[in-house]
Design a protein around this nucleic acid. Structure first.
Lengths: 178, 178
DNA sequence: AGCCTCATGTAAAATGTTACATGATTGA
DNA sequence: TCAATCATGTAACATTTTACATGAGGCT
């Protein structure tokens, strides 16, 4: 499957960057639907280079520090495209530890469960606030076919998802309080 | 973290069952928030037995076929409870291949992206129909503190999540059609 | 007889996380 | 000078998936 491969190729299709840059993006915008640690990214970049899907040239920053600036190759762009348009069956629903806990809620006191729900709500409301803030920075929906459009719809999706998770938690809270 | 361990202990806290039964549940109810293949479940059951958290006795079905019927031990129940009430920080957002593809949508023709969205919609509407059907079988919300309550709220959460995913896809579709 | 489901396992490979390791650059 | 960030990598471990392997039971 090698999805990380395509995630990296996709980022490099937008602009040249270093492994460090890629790692940063995985912990920022992309964090809403993909992520990877640098310990996974550097070996993958090496492999992509060997496969001729990306190239790099060394840039010297300051006096000594060498960075590898990666670019996607024509072949890389082609492989990315092939993957992008490939229609796939729905993935299994992702795992969710909190839902798992909630499922076994009858094994704890209602009070304990209430506290867990309360804690989730606090955390998720913060996250939603942050995402909403970012979304509100767009004055209008970017034109389809631009990379800004991708940014926008994914952010919108993340906001909607978070709102729904919160709505569900509130509903559960309601059942517990009665 | 060994979440699989607690998923299994949780199931066994409800009733005794075999590894095969556990695997079936991971592909049914639990599939909305957890899953595992039998190749992961059998070794984990072995380990839990060694750790004294579960026990089993052999049941003979038919003439020869031996099944291992597992039960949770007192210690297992205690460990499960400790894990259940442990409050944790939000996990990183789960990965989503379709969202990743959509994020790089500017690398394909709008038509291709439209088709992917259309395909997702078809699949997710089917899934939602199935989940809604199951939810509608509950005439009322089960009482908190029962295992039926866990079943119910998780199913409700799954329906809400699916509805939101579909609403997002329709929104994206709307942007693309303009 | 043949097919599907029940039932249990192991092996190998892929993927992902945590820890180890090192050193430069930038700004306060 | 000190701390945070930039920058790149490897090693060990944990988790997960896919494939291999076997055989019984139930039904038509």
């Amino acid at each position: 499957m090698r999805t990380l491969k395509y995630a990296i190729l996709g980022l490099l299709s937008r602009e040249d960057m270093t492994g460090y840059d890629i790692a940063k993006i995985f912990n920022a915008e992309l964090a809403n639907f993909w992520n990877a640690k640098h310990s996974q990214i550097y070996p993958e970049l090496k492999r992509l280079t060997e496969e001729g899907l990306v190239t790099f040239h060394v840039v010297v920053a300051g006096d000594v520090l060498e960075k590898k600036m990666y670019s996607i190759s024509e072949r890389g762009r082609k492989e990315l495209h092939t993957w992008l348009i490939k229609d796939e069956l729905l993935e299994p629903t992702p795992k969710d530890k909190f839902r798992l806990r909630a499922y076994f809620g009858d094994q704890m006191d209602t009070q304990d469960l209430c506290q867990l729900v309360e804690s989730q709500l606090r955390q998720r409301r913060l996250k939603l606030e942050f995402l909403s803030q970012r979304l509100s920075e767009y004055v209008k929906v970017p034109k389809a076919g631009t990379d800004r459009f991708g940014d926008y719809i994914l952010l919108e999706g993340a906001v909607m998802r978070e709102e729904t998770y919160i709505a569900w938690l509130e509903k559960v809270q309601g059942y517990l309080l009665v």
